[in-house]
């Protein structure tokens, strides 16, 4: 190989690296570009938030909403360590109390939006004839719950079981505490478990729609979380962020939330 060929290889390599860096968006994603905001959102809101983002960007050309998903712990860790992000949309409003205590939120921007309602999901046709929470404790029923620390719905499940007094019986039937909520639907539709406690939006929309049956939990037994939004004190673009928050809480925004299985708080 002569030096000319080496030079050619070198140039090609540099071009590829530069192209790669550009493609990865390092140079375009900076804060200086106007019309860019970053939102930290609960993993459970992903489908609705992606839809809201797309609609908002379409209506406001030149704006970009970057959304980072995670569950409460991840979101809080991100806020805590990065000290950036313009807005948070956690899956449970109790998140806001912790964030407020740390002085991370602009308090008067916090708004409740929709409800995160746990339901009982069973296999299509309900072969095990499960009608209420107490049935989860019947012998021979295989139950899947979200991890009781790591997932919001896992925590809610424990609260529900405590209210109905079925915790001990159901616990002995639990075959898996899944660290991610998506696993729960997979186990249910693949027949590994008979029943899971999930949130309504997951069980009634998207891929799961029509593949599982849903049994509502009476309100006095249920533990319902509220999804809300709020601006952080770190925001660099308060105008656009407020506009986005107004949009996702507007009636048009609420229609999009409802499309994805969420019920507005004032309903």
């Amino acid at each position: 190989m002569n030096s000319k060929q080496i030079a050619i290889i070198g140039i090609v390599a540099i071009i590829i690296i530069v192209a790669g860096i550009y493609a990865s968006g390092i140079f375009t994603g900076g804060n200086s570009a106007k019309g860019n905001i970053t939102v930290l959102a609960g993993a459970g809101t992903m489908k609705a938030m992606n839809d809201l983002k797309a609609t908002f960007e379409e209506k406001n050309p030149g704006t970009t909403v970057n959304i980072q998903y995670g569950n409460s712990g991840e979101l809080f860790a991100t806020l805590d360590t990065q000290k950036s992000a313009d807005m948070v949309v956690p899956g449970d409003l109790t998140f806001m109390d912790n964030a407020k205590n740390k002085g991370y939120m602009i308090n008067d921007t916090i708004k409740p939006i929709v409800k995160h309602i746990p339901v009982i999901a069973v296999q299509k046709g309900n072969p095990k004839n499960i009608t209420n929470i107490t049935d989860l404790g019947r012998s021979g029923i295989k139950v899947a719950l979200g991890d009781t620390n790591g997932t919001a719905v896992g925590k809610q499940s424990i609260k529900i079981l405590n209210k109905t007094g079925d915790l001990a019986a159901v616990k002995s039937n639990v075959v898996v505490y899944a660290p991610t909520v998506n696993q729960l639907m997979t186990y249910l539709t693949s027949g590994q478990v008979d029943v899971a406690i999930v949130t309504e939006d997951i069980a009634t929309t998207g891929e799961a729609q029509g593949k599982v049956d849903v049994i509502q939990i009476p309100e006095n037994q249920n533990s319902i979380a509220t999804i809300g939004a709020g601006l952080t004190v770190f925001t660099q673009n308060k105008g656009l962020t407020t506009k986005f928050e107004d949009f996702i809480t507007s009636s048009e925004g609420l229609t999009i939330w409802q499309k994805h299985g969420f019920k507005p708080v004032n309903q």
């Binding site: 991890d147 505490y177 696993q183 997979t186």
Partner: peptide
């Protein structure tokens, strides 16, 4: 391993 084992705390 997460999918098949379930990833249950202290168990799998």
């Amino acid at each position: 391993v997460l999918l098949v084992g379930g990833g249950t705390y202290l168990k799998t």
